[in-house]
Design a protein around this nucleic acid. Structure first.
Lengths: 158, 158
DNA sequence: CTATGTATGTAATATCATAACACGTCAAGA
DNA sequence: TCTTGACGTGTTATGATATTACATACATAG
């Protein structure tokens, strides 16, 4: 398990470590980590929050990249395809994957107070879901699990 | 457990039974089941699929109700608040709750082939999720669990 | 009957997402 | 070397989803 965003941490480690793994992942798959794509991942990594495509776009265009929606959506789609980012359906937003390269189905913990997004270990959840679905003859291929609640910090405050 | 949409069933039973329960639920909570709201629920009940707000709106306006988005969104929001319908984030769409009145967190099984949506018993899944979240100090309040896959009928065909 | 809260109608607009096409670059093969 | 084709990026235009704000109607309690 990677360090969790919920706790104090040296954030530059997240960024550096994940970026390094991202370069490795793309190199391994033959995909090209271009400047826009790299920059988008960096932008997502700057915060443990989900950013909307238009948020990302705004930063991109401020830095001289294109300023039309497809620029952001394409880069984000690439990152999601590569397993380097996740889409948070509930928020219509995207977040960097904090442990790329390790195969995993996503389970997201979204703090309704500070909007931080963390990924939780999902194996047991997934097993329970598969079992429940199998009862009905349904074969689960992909699952989105998004939990809304309070992170440790915000839970204390409240 | 209510009859599952995946199997052959007398659909008028779904509709009639659920509508009756819906009237009971709203009466009990003091909420008003108005014509638009009732009609929207009926529309959702006509199929075991998720319908977009604009799909619903189109049918409403064809029947003489208002033809602006808020008409549909408000009725849908009401139904969701009352636990009579669910929002499927993944599809930006809504589906009737097939067992209103019984408290439940939702877990949806969405067939990627025929778009049927079923609700699966979720208690064990939810327990696993709560446990995983608790490890990280996160308190889950609401969880969205949406699984994409193949329903029994479409699974056989493939 | 009238005051009040709630529901509905409507216009306008915000937000999220994609289709379609043009242009540039780079690498593989004729 | 030249060409060709795949891919990435830029841009225009549009589509799809959702909300704000305000006006009107309507039911019910007082």
């Amino acid at each position: 398990m990677q360090p969790q965003p919920f706790h104090d941490h040296d954030h530059s480690h997240c960024t550096g470590d994940v970026m390094a793994r991202a370069e490795a992942v793309t190199a391994a798959s033959g995909a090209r980590m271009t400047p826009v794509r790299r920059r988008v991942l960096e932008i997502l990594l700057e915060e443990h929050r989900a950013l909307g495509a238009y948020d990302v776009l705004q930063r991109l265009s401020a830095e001289g990249f294109g300023n039309q929606p497809p620029v952001a959506y394409r880069a984000l789609e690439f990152l999601v395809d590569q397993g380097l980012a996740h889409r948070i359906q509930r928020l219509n937003a995207f977040t960097a994957c904090m442990h790329p390269g390790t195969s995993h189905a996503p389970a997201f913990l979204i703090c309704r107070s500070c909007n931080t997004v963390a990924e939780a270990p999902v194996a047991p959840v997934r097993a329970a879901l598969d079992a429940a679905a199998a009862e009905l003859g349904f074969a689960v291929e992909r699952a989105n699990i998004e939990a809304l609640g309070l992170c440790p910090a915000c839970g204390e405050t409240a």
